[in-house]
Simulated scan of single mutants.
Amino acid sequence: MERFKSEVLLYIYNRLFEGKIVRKNDVEDKFNISERTFYRYIEDIKKFLEKPDGELVGEEIIADRAKGGYILKGKHERNLNEKEVLAISKVLLESRGFVKMELKDMLDKLLENCISEDKDNIKRIIGNELVNYVSPQHSKKLLDKLWQISNAIKEQKILSIGYFKMGTDGKLQEEVSQRNVYPLGLLFSEYYFYLIAYIEGKSYEYPTIYRVDRIKDLIITDKKYKVDYSKRFQDGEFRKLIQFMQTGELERVKFRFTGRSIEAVLDRLPNAKVIKEKQGEYIVEAKLFGKGIKMWLLSQGDSVEVIGSDKLREEIVESIEKMKNLYI
């Protein structure tokens, strides 16, 4: 009898611990016990959790009428539910930042730790996307490298890296460039992860950007670097200034926008401001790195007209003329 009781208690406890719903009728039918016995077992587990040395101190078993059973309250508040897991899975799939094997492992673990009675439904929703998922062309696993870089940033340790540069023919050069860098941050943009870093011994005003998948022979050295707190790198602020991970000179840009969604423009350019609006025409100002914003402006076709600076306007006109000549 004691062995049977332990089996039922463990079953109920494990379901609660995993964040699942314990329904009275399900337990009664599975173990052929009475309603009275079920409630007594629930009380036994409640008493165990209330003990100071209980494994889940602070957790509380509650009857959730909406879910039709008992849940471990703290577990449901802290663990991801099916809606959250679905949203995260969709973002990961759309980002195409990881090779298929790494992505599948992450999605499997997300589902394993999900609070849901119907995990198979989530698998069906994302299953077709995963089957047809196309890994990035570099085909490299990145999780370990991203973790190493993150630790180096946290500990302010100098990184020794080999880096494959892009050649003029659009292909990676075979020769590896060796350098020591001060790692400042990690960013993700348009399918790739980037290391933001200063090169040791160089005095550039702005940091250099390295695609993580092109880094070879990553070594965290024992040497440390110092950064004044007032000049520390702020990932969020840097991201506002950059487009397509292209730097160049920091410029103030003004343009007229007549496209369909000014909201999309302001989402794309987080530090942009609408300074004038009239009948679907918007005058927008922003402070951005020149190379990246030029690429974005050209991508908007006749929805955008650059008003300032004069230098940027001339560069845009020159680029449009070259594009025109390709079709003549």
Rank of each mutant, 00 (worst) to 15 (best):
E237W: 03
V227W: 00
K216L: 05
K165A: 12
K224V: 10
N180G: 00
G236R: 08
L172W: 07
A152F: 14
K231F: 06
K226H: 11
Y163M: 07
D222H: 08
D228N: 13
D228A: 14
R214C: 02
T208Q: 11
Y182C: 10
L146R: 08
E155Y: 11
R211D: 00
W147E: 15
R211T: 00
N151K: 12
D169S: 12
I158L: 10
D169W: 05
Y163I: 05
Y182F: 10
Q178V: 06
Y204A: 06
L172D: 08
E190I: 02
W147R: 12
Y182K: 14
T221M: 09
F164Y: 15
E155H: 06
S177H: 13
S203N: 14
Q178K: 12
V181G: 06
R232S: 12
S177G: 02
T208G: 01
I219Q: 14
G162Y: 01
G162K: 03
E200A: 12
I209G: 00
E190D: 13
S177T: 15
R214G: 01
F188L: 04
K171N: 09
K216V: 10
D235P: 03
V176T: 10
R211E: 00
V176Y: 01
S189D: 12
N180C: 06
R232A: 14
L146Y: 11
E155P: 00
I209N: 08
K226T: 10
D217G: 09
V181N: 08
I199D: 06
D235N: 14
I149K: 04
D213R: 08
D228P: 14
Q234K: 15
K224A: 06
E175Q: 13
F193A: 03
D217N: 13
V227S: 10
K171R: 12
F233S: 01
N180S: 15
K171Q: 11
Y206Q: 04
K157W: 09
D222V: 01
G185C: 04
F233I: 00
G201A: 09
K216N: 11
G236F: 03
P183H: 06
K165E: 11
G167Q: 04
E174L: 08
D228Q: 09
Q234L: 05
L159P: 02
K154T: 11
Q178H: 11
K202Y: 08
Y198N: 14
E237I: 15
I209K: 05
I196A: 00
I220F: 06
R214L: 05
